[in-house]
Structure formats: structure tokens, C-alpha cells
Design a protein around this nucleic acid. Structure first.
Lengths: 347, 347
DNA sequence: CCCCCTGATGTTAACGCAAACATCCACGCG
DNA sequence: CGCGTGGATGTTTGCGTTAACATCAGGGGG
């Protein structure tokens, strides 16, 4: 009397499962170990045998099973990427570059968004990614507080892209200070007495470094350092800051910490009847593709996000492969792009 | 006589490997199967036992091994996402939403960039992702030619986000036609005789549908259909088209297929001395966060990318889970946002 | 001519987990 | 009071792959 469960034929799944090495081996008349060798491009396989195996693979449409391979090798061939706001231009570009570089290195990319720009959120994302599924992790524009509790588990190679430095992890960095200096120098060189700054959010390391570099550059030049305004990267926040600045006649030059905020600043100035660049010079940071088409084509600092992404993967690969020595740093130089939003002060 | 290989102690790796279920089982004094049950939140475990196991897990820092689990279950708990230009705002936002929804469903996200916006490139990315590592695939703004050779392998659930429809895959779609109609109706309603269109690239399905809807809307309204201009989504291409249009005095209303191109168009008009919106009305599509801060705050169509992303995951989960019936479609309605870049024609 | 070395190939044994099946215990009902 | 029932738990097995070791054939030097 057949039980109803029996109908399903417990172990012999007749539905065309994807073929395994054993299937290929059978077809090629070799052992599955030889198939494995061919699949992994080992040298010690006879040319004719290899050919036969390859043919069988093709015939059967064989694909190696990543899980089985990962189980035995302990490697996933996957790299994890953590970022907070992936729809922000710079982060997206960096991510795209990482993804391209990873593909070239035959690595998959596992993305995990951080819920917030906090050490805790980053750590949570990190933990999730750590669940054995990745060989290395790249954090885009993330900061971590290097306190013992927030320290990341160290069993996996880590690279920070444009994030917090000064800790024990590898880092690919855009030289924020240099970019900032070039902006400030450009504006002071045009004859402005000083430069006002609309900073990015306090919890962004990049924003903080730009603000610090702005401060130091002005001090070094002997200019007075005006009060700092904060935004949150959005054009809206730039607009808000711009309204405030538009009310002060002494403001002749504004350095916004990114291009979106610069756009908002320009809009506020326009509404207040102050012309850019005749009355006020405005600069940004990033050089988004639209910057040249802003109300006044924007003088800004171009960041090479592609280079950042590529370097990240390189550094990660180094750690995964060798693991020799201390984690390396890499730096990418930004370049000042002068357009029409800056000019000598009136009068 | 010890061989030199012996120094490495073949099987007993003393280096602290991550603990397995067996370790947890030993510590908790249960079988590893019970640990498995606890790890998978099964009902049939005694409360006290469960507690003991959980404690042991915590103590040992146990993390389930994804590879082993995948090997035995045949599921990876991972979903693949394919997109061409992930740094484009809409794609990035959709991707972010997918990633969030996936996390909530305890799924990982594996991203694979398509090298180009072609069926072949998409298929290649698809193949790579198929290498057993994903349970389902979402394609963002991709089109495929539904010819036999380009047909995707069908062993994995697939959802298209805002991509080619009219094939046998599930689809989440922004109602491009409706959004376009609302723009055209708005402009005609203001009194414009007709509306010029700067379309997105020919290989974009979204662009094509907007162009078609524009064409039909004009025809339906009895307006003459002016020649179509093509861009590539970039502000630069919008600028180029804008220069051409600025030279034609009969142009009073322009519908650009996205906001970046609208910005370029506005810039070109401004350079030509034609004011927006007094002389020419301009609209975009997308409603990027900066749109409100363009030289003239942009009238545009807001797309709910978050909804698209979430629907994608839902539909994919349905396919993975049930697989019942034919793949479903979902549609997201866009909404017209009227700002200051549109006005009645002069005179 | 024999031995040892080299390169190709096969065999065995995990990797860590969950499905299927087996076992055990306590409880309730006839 | 015995037996069936159902829930908790244990045992066995195999997922597809690679590392390690075993085997085998051929070739060159003493």
C-alpha cells in the first residue's frame, strides 16, 4: 500500500537538475577529479583529456557549484560592499567601479546598505556580510569609531573607500585636503578676502576633512575664518545655507562641500538678487556630470571615483592573497576644474 | 623520520576556525541536528534546550556556514541584480530600494553590472549570475530582444524593473505613458500649440515608451508632432539638443525625457537669451532631488523608484516561493510635479 | 637492466549542514 | 493496564567539490 509521500520518490529527483562533475566525468570517461582539474585550469592534465572534458562540459551545460566549492575551499569568490546612501553620485560611481574591477578579477559583489551613517549601523551590515559569505569587505564613505566595542571583527580583509582613516585598516582616499586647498587658493587668488564654507553633515568623514582643510588653508593664508555652516549634502540644505549667506553683504566667495549644495546656494543667491559670479563666487566639490550646466557653470573639484573603486579592489586582493605586512593606503589626487561660477570680487 | 610535510599537521588546523554546528552541539550537550533546528527556528525544540543552544551559539560566536547550507538546500538566500549604469539616479535609487527590501526578507544582493545596454551584455551578466549563486534575478532598466538566441535561461525566477515588457517575465513598471500624457496635457493646457521632445537614447525602453506616448498624446490632442530630437540622458546631450531648439523661434515648450537633459536644455536656452519659462517652457522626467533648484525650478514627473524596487523583490519572492501561475506585472504611477519652468506661451 | 623520478590520473575523505528516518519518552484513552 | 500517539531528540546520509594521497606508466641514468 503506497503512502502518499512515496509518490515523490524521495531521493531520485527526475527533474533535470544541473549536471555535476560526476555527470561530466561519466560522459568524458574520466574521474571527477580530472574534471575538477580542468575546471580549475590546472596544468597537469593531458591536452587531449582536457579537450574531451571541455567538450563534455559544454555538451551538458555544466556550471560549477559555487556552494560546494566554497564549502571545501573556504572561499566564496565574493566581495562585500557596504555603503550608506548608494544613490549619492560619488558612492554610486565608486560602487560601479568596484563592481567592474571585481568582475575583472572574477569576483562577485555582495552589496549591503547601512541603515545609517553610524558606527553601529556599519557594524551591523558588517556582521551580516561576515556570515561567511565574503572574502573581503569594502566600506564606502563610512566611518567607524575605533573604540574597542565598535572595532570590526578582524577575520576578514577590509578596505575603506574614502572613509575614516587613522585606524588599522587599508584605505583608499581622495586627497580632500589637497582638493580643498586648491579651491581656497583659487578663490583667494582671485582677490577674495576670505571664503565661506557650507560643510557636509557632521557624521561624514569626507565632509569633516574638507572643513578642516578649509579652516587651515584660510589660516595659513592669514585670512579670517568665517563661521561654518552645515548642510547634509542635499541641494535643499545648500539652499537653506545660501539664504543665510545671501543676507550678508560681506560674503563674496562660498565653497560648498559638494556640487548639490552649491546648486542650492546658487539658487538662494539668485533669488536674493545676488549674481554668480559677479557678486558672489561659488564652488562645489565632486564635479557631477551636470556641474557644467548649472546656472553658472560650476567651478569645482573633480574626484576620480573610478580610480578609488579600482584601488579598493586591488588593495583588497592584496590582503586576500598575500596578507603580508600592514594594510596599505592609496591616495587619489583630485583636480580643480575652473568654470564660470568664480570671478574676482566686485569693486 | 618525520617528513617535512608533516610539520604542517595536515588535518588538524589549530588556527581558530569559525565554529560549526558540531562545536555548538558539543557545548550544549545536544546533537548537531538540534542545533540546526534552533538555527532554523523550528518549532519542535524544547524551550530549555533552545535556550541552552542559543547560549552556546552566542558563547562560541557561531555563524551558520552559508555555503554548506546552500549546498544542501540548493538555495543561496541571494538575489542577483543586473543594471547597466548604476550611477544614474533612477537606477541607483531602485537598486537601493531593492537592497533594503532584500535585507528585510533576509536575502543578500549580488550586483552585476552589464557592460552595455545590449541584449548580449545583459545575457552575459545573467549567465555569470546564474552560476548557481542566486535564487532570482532582477534586471533594472534592461531590455532584451525576445529572439530565441537571446532568450534568457529559464531555470531562475526573473523580474524586470522598468524594462522591456511584452515578454514572458515578471515586470515592475513605471507607467511612462501616463506620466508623459500628464506632462503633455499640462503644457497644452497652458496654451502651447505643441510640445517638442528631447528623447533618451534609442536603446532605452523607458525612453522609447516616453517618446511613443508623447507622440500619441500630441496626435490625440490634434497637435502637430514636431521632429524628435535624441539625447543620451546626459545634460551635455540635452544642451546640444537645446542649442538646436533655441534657434527655432516657434519652439515654446520642450519636454525632455529626463531631468539632466532638461537642465542642459535650459542652459542652452539661457545662453541663447531665451528665458524659461517666459519664452520657453521646459519639463523633465524623474524629479531628481536637485530639480527644484534648477535655474527655473523644474516641472517634472516624479517616479517612485522605491516602490519599484520593493515591488521587484515582492514579485521575485512570489516566484521563488510559489511559482504558481504566470509571472505577474506591477505598475507604479508617476505624478506630475508642477514648478516654475512651465508657463503659458508669450503673446 | 634496474631503479627512481616525473607527470597523468584515480581514489578517498572531508567540508558543514539539513532531509529523512529512527528512537525515545510521556501521556491519555479504551 | 497496555497500547497508540505525538512531540522532542538523535542517527544516518548525501549535497558537489577539492585536498591529499595512491597508483600507474614511461624514461633516463648508473
Amino acid at each position: 500500500m503506497p503512502r502518499e509521500v512515496g509518490a515523490r520518490s524521495p531521493r531520485s529527483r527526475p527533474l533535470r537538475q544541473s549536471p555535476s562533475m560526476a555527470d561530466v566525468a561519466a560522459m568524458a570517461g574520466v574521474s571527477s577529479q580530472t574534471v575538477s582539474r580542468v575546471a580549475n585550469n590546472r596544468e597537469n592534465v593531458d591536452a587531449s583529456t582536457r579537450e574531451r572534458v571541455l567538450a563534455a562540459m559544454k555538451m551538458l551545460g555544466y556550471r560549477p557549484n559555487t556552494a560546494a566549492r566554497a564549502l571545501v575551499t573556504g572561499r566564496f569568490g565574493t566581495l562585500g560592499v557596504i555603503s550608506f546612501d548608494i544613490s549619492a553620485y560619488g558612492n554610486a560611481r565608486t560602487f560601479a567601479a568596484i563592481s567592474d574591477a571585481a568582475r575583472e578579477a572574477d569576483l562577485f559583489v555582495n552589496f549591503m546598505g547601512a541603515r545609517a551613517q553610524t558606527g553601529a549601523a556599519v557594524r551591523q551590515a558588517f556582521q551580516q556580510l561576515m556570515v561567511q559569505s565574503v572574502d573581503g569587505i569594502i566600506l564606502i564613505e563610512s566611518q567607524i569609531l575605533d573604540t574597542p566595542e565598535l572595532r570590526l571583527p578582524s577575520t576578514v580583509p577590509v578596505v575603506f573607500a574614502d572613509g575614516d582613516t587613522g585606524h588599522r585598516y587599508a584605505n583608499v582616499d581622495i586627497d580632500q585636503a589637497e582638493g580643498t586647498r586648491s579651491v581656497v587658493a583659487h578663490l583667494l587668488g582671485l582677490g577674495h578676502r576670505t571664503v565661506w564654507h557650507v560643510a557636509g553633515p557632521r557624521d561624514s568623514y569626507a565632509a569633516r576633512r574638507r572643513a578642516e582643510a578649509w579652516h587651515r588653508s584660510l589660516k595659513d593664508a592669514g585670512s579670517v575664518v568665517p563661521p561654518l555652516l552645515y548642510g547634509d549634502w542635499s541641494a535643499t540644505s545648500g539652499y537653506r545655507a545660501g539664504r543665510e549667506l545671501a543676507g550678508r553683504p560681506e560674503v563674496t566667495a562660498i565653497f560648498a562641500s559638494n556640487d548639490q549644495m552649491a546648486l542650492g546656494v546658487m539658487r538662494a543667491l539668485q533669488e536674493a538678487g545676488r549674481r554668480v559670479p559677479q557678486d558672489v563666487s561659488v564652488t562645489g566639490f565632486d564635479d557631477v556630470p551636470e556641474a557644467a550646466f548649472f546656472p553658472a557653470p560650476l567651478t569645482t573639484v573633480r574626484q576620480d571615483f573610478d580610480a578609488v573603486g579600482r584601488h579598493c579592489v586591488t588593495l583588497l586582493l592584496e590582503q586576500i592573497g598575500g596578507g603580508t605586512g600592514s594594510p596599505r593606503q592609496a591616495s587619489v589626487a583630485p583636480v580643480l576644474v575652473v568654470r564660470e561660477s568664480t570671478a574676482p570680487p566686485a569693486g
